[in-house]
Design a protein around this nucleic acid. Sequence first.
DNA 1: TATATTTTGTTATTTTTTTAGCATATATGT
DNA 2: ACATATATGCTAAAAAAATAACAAAATATA
Lengths: 208, 208
Amino acid sequence: MDDKNISQAVVARLPRYYRYLGELRDSGIERISSQDLSSLMKVTASQIRQDFNNFGGFGQQGYGYNVEYLYNEIAKILGLDKTHNLIIVGAGNLGQALANYMNFERRGFLLKGLFDKNPALYGKELRGIAVQSVENIECFVRENDIDIAVLTIPKDGAVKTAEILVRCNIKAIWNFAHVDLNVPDNIVVENVHLSDSLMKLSYGIANQ
Amino acid sequence: MDDKNISQAVVARLPRYYRYLGELRDSGIERISSQDLSSLMKVTASQIRQDFNNFGGFGQQGYGYNVEYLYNEIAKILGLDKTHNLIIVGAGNLGQALANYMNFERRGFLLKGLFDKNPALYGKELRGIAVQSVENIECFVRENDIDIAVLTIPKDGAVKTAEILVRCNIKAIWNFAHVDLNVPDNIVVENVHLSDSLMKLSYGIANQ
DNA sequence: TATATTTTGTTATTTTTTTAGCATATATGT
DNA sequence: ACATATATGCTAAAAAAATAACAAAATATA
Ligand SMILES: NC(=O)c1ccc[n+]([C@@H]2O[C@H](COP(=O)([O-])OP(=O)(O)OC[C@H]3O[C@@H](n4cnc5c(N)ncnc54)[C@H](O)[C@@H]3O)[C@@H](O)[C@H]2O)c1
Ligand SMILES: NC(=O)c1ccc[n+]([C@@H]2O[C@H](COP(=O)([O-])OP(=O)(O)OC[C@H]3O[C@@H](n4cnc5c(N)ncnc54)[C@H](O)[C@@H]3O)[C@@H](O)[C@H]2O)c1
């Protein structure tokens, strides 16, 4: 939470640790050594210990790591101990799929609003939330303590909408449009570039 | 295509180069120096030159890079000069969103089949393709020269379906389920773990 | 045509990331 | 209580990645 200079590579590995620890916990495992976790996850034990030690020592020599404790500590590091209010901008195919997906709520990501520029969609409800006009975004974000905006609109709209969201003091943007958003440093942007992912896959096929 | 030992970090940057070069090409730019591309993309010119030189020299001293040529070369490296036949397994929210998305076809990723285990969906058409039973996957993949399977089903189903796909000699799996698939080395797996992405975003919020 | 400028490809250097090694602390078993 | 086995946290080494430097080649200019 406090100390900086954690590399992106380390942060990117945390969710995977979190997932494995959750599964261990669910199956009743109380403790695990970096060695055992290492063979389970197919990474080196050294990397596991280094990663955790970036955030302080969560283990005990001769014992290993307490699964439940470590799981909760990682949740805190990832900010999953707090809830986040989010809106989805773009209630098309992808926006609706995300809106209908329940599992994010379980991790504290609460859908509060849905926006589109197509009037035909206004009033359409997804999980009890009605789609409204994009013109309401600014007020809505300010009045409803929205942390995260999910952008599931085409790229031109995404760039312009990002500017609006910046004005509203949004904390983070989860961007599914295939464009790099230009926002101030204090705003978190996480891109999901599906076509990039598909091209990497294509590279993999082309190069055995 | 031929030489190996290209790091994943380099491959992961190629789609972004490809996107910027496409945009430059579309706006009529014929040539660009690593320096100019560097300030456009906000990476170092050195990295750009190193990256391209992994695959051979595409530029000319004193001139720079020919945009059209480089764009096409990167397409070849990424295997985008060939078409790929794909199927989607899981015609739920996400599967349908991907099926309805037209842009992948433009890059040569052709949707050939849709599969689900829910009989209520059988026959439902998306872009002219009817959903069919998962029991047909094996035959269909073998008979229709399918390269890529997109997994948009829950994790338990994904692990089992991956095993079936391996038996069918699938080349690659684009996995949206939140689980690590265990497949032979010669099969390409590209994971899209959206919840991991959302957790990284959450980390970003929690740590300023 | 000669000269100055541009810009790559490549080698060298620096930085970052990963892996290995080990001293020390804790647990376990007798 | 003591000895032995475990397994972390940390430091050191190795490997990988990113950046810088620069000679050579091509372009542009006068
Ligand atoms: N669907 C996919 O599988 C997929 C895959 C990769 C990338 N994407 C990206 O996700 C985004 C959405 O994809 P989709 O398939 O859901 O498209 P879609 O056309 O189904 O939905 C887009 C929605 O956004 C709305 N919209 C457009 N401009 C807007 C604006 N400025 N403000 C508010 N709403 C606006 C439209 O009215 C529409 O309802 C696109 O950027 C696309 O490139 C989607
Ligand atoms: N929708 C999202 O926004 C989202 C986000 C993150 C991850 N995911 C992941 O994507 C997957 C699908 O999500 P969704 O929202 O589309 O779910 P969904 O429930 O809408 O659709 C899943 C579909 O898969 C089918 N199915 C289930 N098991 C199957 C099997 N063994 N073989 C064939 N079909 C099977 C179901 O009948 C259903 O039609 C899940 O693994 C989910 O974790 C989805």
